[in-house]
Design a protein around this nucleic acid. Structure first.
Lengths: 337, 337
DNA sequence: ATTATCTACTAAACCTGTTTAGCATTACCA
DNA sequence: TGGTAATGCTAAACAGGTTTAGTAGATAAT
């Protein structure tokens, strides 16, 4: 095991001060009037022996880490995993590393994770905020950390965010079902105060209201197991035999919905039409293929990173916040034809 | 913004030395003969003002970080995402945080990531190794870092690992198809020198050989796109009309296989029976439901963490390595009936 | 000749903890 | 009473970088 070299070793080997080495390695040679000849000699030697500065020491002194903290609701969920993956790649290209973790929508866990990230001197934050986290996020911002939210935002917190046009998406999907002649359209969602969920509900309600139809809303507890969700939906089928279409507020509910319709022996779309929010391969390959509201995953990731990089590279803290709302796409498939 | 407290602030406020504070906070009060009265006073005050030691400074001095580096092939793949999620939870319970990243099976990227992890003073490593990474992993081990591999292992590197019984799994699945009367069973895999892939191929070949059947093996390049894989399979269907069963070497190939059989208009399992390695919800919900070799995801994660924790807590470096091989389960569904 | 300016560096402080070595007191013992 | 041991705590070194403040010597300006 070759012992790791330190900047002092480099300085000693070249008989110069570690200050000089530090200046050169940080590109401040010109500014500090280090001769070109010495710069070349140091760079050459450093390359030769493969010296890499200890980033802990660096972070300790500078307060910067070149690390971005990414907090998603659940990394094992396809939507978040894919976005996380792309964010990771993009950040990497800009010289940043990512630390990520799942919040589980658990406020306390999120608080602990934020504390850990702060402690680790993370440079910026990308977060899908759980409930009641406003204060912690505000503190981050107050303390000058760049924060970008996505998927949802916090109305009471002024910060950058990237979301999709949830209200229009469900309005449009519901209208689509109405246009197909469906009269009893149900909406299955989580009971949540998060913006994306509220907006999706509003979009549904707006379309239903406009057409003077009767709303059917099932709210599922966020911590309900798949079994419980399944049972809830099956019970709903029992008590609402007239429902002829369902809109699911996210991919997980959609998946449970598929299980439920199958178990109930419903013919899709003959007996009942289905539309899910957030497309993924299951909906594409399922028989019959499921109509879905596809979120622009790559675009979301691209914009999140773009906003964060702008803030990280800004010399003065930008005062006004940027809010990006992206369009979704209704992908029509067999389940709603 | 309240400025972050340092151990010096604590010491000054209490008019004692920061050494004393450090000893107390690290539970070395008894050993260092600090009076119980003072211990109580310090602990009380620290709690009161909410002081948390700066972990960067701590890591810099001690060389320990309470962070585990997790390198999986692709975090957006369901199998890895789920394992990563569970590993994260388990590590968290033991007081460790996880930094994870995707290797993409790219050797150079993996080397860079390992360098970054080392640099960040990560305490231990969990890795699904790509090709040609033997030397880097050996270096880690030589330098005393706990390393646990999973999903595959490196025959030339002596370390702990957790894998499944790949050979038996595919042997068993192939035999299952043979018992059903299939005569022309194909195996679709990646051209890979990784142990898990080699073993899966061997299991298939062994069963085919025992029954004196003719092997049909398609090897797909790891970097092939879904489109290319699809085309390859469709071409294979064209040129091998007699094939009546396919075993896929992993979930992604299985997914492409579903698309292919659908596109080719094949009746499953009438025309052709399918079995996929590595179960997930798509296979469960697809019509017809796909028979799959289910890996014990939770058990894999549990054992990986168990092995790593044993090494992390060991006072002396354990000489002999532990190799854990877990059983898979063949989940019979419609696609092979 | 003296002062100012510039060049090319560097010593020492700093970031925030941990760890080593050691220093007063008091207690104990012969 | 003098020597040893135990008690209770601390100063300073250390981890490995960055940054501030400054220095020695050469050149230019007054």
């Amino acid at each position: 095991m070759k012992k790791k070299l330190s900047i002092v070793d480099i300085a000693n080997s070249l008989n110069i001060s570690k200050t000089t080495v530090s200046f050169i390695l940080n590109g401040r040679a010109q500014e500090k009037r280090i001769s070109d000849e010495l710069v070349k000699r140091v760079l050459q030697y450093v390359k030769e022996v493969g010296y890499k500065p200890n980033s802990l020491a660096k972070s300790l002194r500078t307060g910067k880490s070149n690390i971005i903290g990414l907090l998603v609701q659940d990394i094992s969920n396809h939507f978040f995993a894919t976005i996380a993956r792309r964010i990771e790649d993009l950040a990497y290209q800009s010289g940043y590393k990512i630390i990520y973790s799942s919040t589980d929508n658990d406020t306390q866990k999120t608080q602990e994770l934020i504390a850990m990230f702060r402690d680790r001197h993370v440079d910026g934050y990308i977060i899908t905020p759980p409930d009641n986290i406003e204060e912690d996020i505000s503190d981050l911002i107050k303390d000058g950390f760049p924060v970008v939210l996505f998927d949802r935002y916090l109305p009471k917190v002024a910060t950058d965010y990237v979301v999709v046009d949830n209200l229009f998406s469900t309005f449009n999907a519901t209208q689509y079902l109405i246009d197909k002649g469906h009269k009893n359209i149900a909406f299955i969602t989580y009971s949540s105060i998060q913006t994306q969920m509220i907006e999706r509900l509003e979009g549904y309600e707006k379309a239903i209201r406009q057409s003077k139809l009767k709303p059917h809303i099932i709210e599922v507890d966020f911590h309900a197991t798949d079994q419980e969700i399944l049972k809830l939906i099956l019970d709903f089928f029992e008590s609402h035999k007239d429902v002829d279409a369902i809109l699911f507020a996210n991919n997980h509910l959609g998946k449970c919905g598929l299980k439920a319709t199958r178990k109930a022996g419903k013919n899709v779309p003959g007996d009942i039409a289905l539309i899910a929010f957030d497309d993924y391969e299951l909906f594409e390959l399922y028989t019959p293929a499921v109509t879905a509201i596809a979120q622009p995953i790559d675009e979301i990731a691209d914009n999140v990173i773009k906003l964060l990089m702008e803030r990280l590279n800004a010399t003065t803290p930008e005062e006004k916040n940027q809010h990006i709302t992206l369009a979704t796409e209704l992908i029509e498939r067999d389940s709603s034809r």
